[in-house]
């Protein structure tokens, strides 16, 4: 922010903090092409300029794709699901398909993970709205020459949050699916989940016909 010269607003008090809030940030160790954040500003700026300036100030691989002036409501209210792609090098697609069917057939899939509140047991099945083994459209990253199943999963925002590794734990619990090498997860999208199971870009509502005014711009960087 400082490198880009963004006139970011600060909280009051003994230790002023910049007003930046992240909505459902991706966990450590996964890739993402769809992260969102909100920035409070001292004065209006042009969102297109803001996008360019921030993008230039960030490290390679951290790209700011779009920025809009925020409309009503918080960003978090518009995000209730994520779509993930999970590559499983060394796993035959048919094996993955069988595991997915077992997972879908279950009414509840309990897994265990350490959270900040300690060890928690929670249901992964309820958070998963869709899970498919997709046909391979491109060579997956990593080592070539081994089979690689690719999952696409839509996970709803629940508490505690269900992450892609939790879904994989669920597949291990119900179907003994054990990837031989660490899987690679990428968040492809997040936003509002429609009745049809589509994810709507949370910036969409603010994109057209919104005057640049006194409201807070949101910046949407994609992280990879």
């Amino acid at each position: 922010m400082r490198r880009a010269g963004v006139p970011v607003a600060f909280s009051q008090g003994f230790t002023p903090h910049p007003k930046i809030s992240y909505a459902s940030a991706a966990p450590t160790g996964v890739a993402s092409e769809a992260e969102y954040l909100e920035i409070g500003l001292q004065r209006p700026v042009d969102p297109a300029d803001l996008r360019k300036a921030l993008d230039a100030a960030l490290s390679p691989g951290l790209d700011v794709l779009d920025a809009v002036v925020a409309g009503g409501g918080s960003l978090a209210e518009r995000i209730d699901a994520s779509r993930w792609r999970v590559e499983l090098p060394g796993v035959e697609p048919d094996v993955a398909r069988a595991a997915v069917s077992t997972f879908l057939a279950a009414s509840e899939v309990l897994v265990e993970r350490m959270t900040k509140q300690g060890r928690r047991v929670f249901d992964t099945r309820v958070a998963v709205t869709t899970i498919d083994v997709i046909e391979r459209t491109e060579a997956p990253s990593g080592v070539a020459g081994v089979p690689c199943a690719i999952l696409e999963v839509v996970v709803r925002q629940v508490t505690p949050s269900v992450r892609p590794d939790d879904v994989l734990s669920g597949l291990r619990v119900v179907a003994d699916l054990e990837p031989p090498v660490p899987p690679r997860a990428t968040r492809l999208a997040q936003g509002t989940l429609t009745a049809q199971g589509e994810i709507v870009d949370p910036l969409e509502a603010d994109r057209d016909g919104t005057a640049i005014g006194e409201r807070q711009p949101e910046v949407r960087p994609a992280v990879r």
């Binding site: 880009a4 010269g5 006139p7 042009d46 360019k52 300036a53 230039a56």
Partner: peptide, 13 residues
């Protein structure tokens, strides 16, 4: 300082 956004070189608008 704080004269506004620092745009990358060569990207006028």
């Amino acid at each position: 300082v704080n004269t506004g956004l620092r745009m990358p070189a060569g990207t006028g608008h």
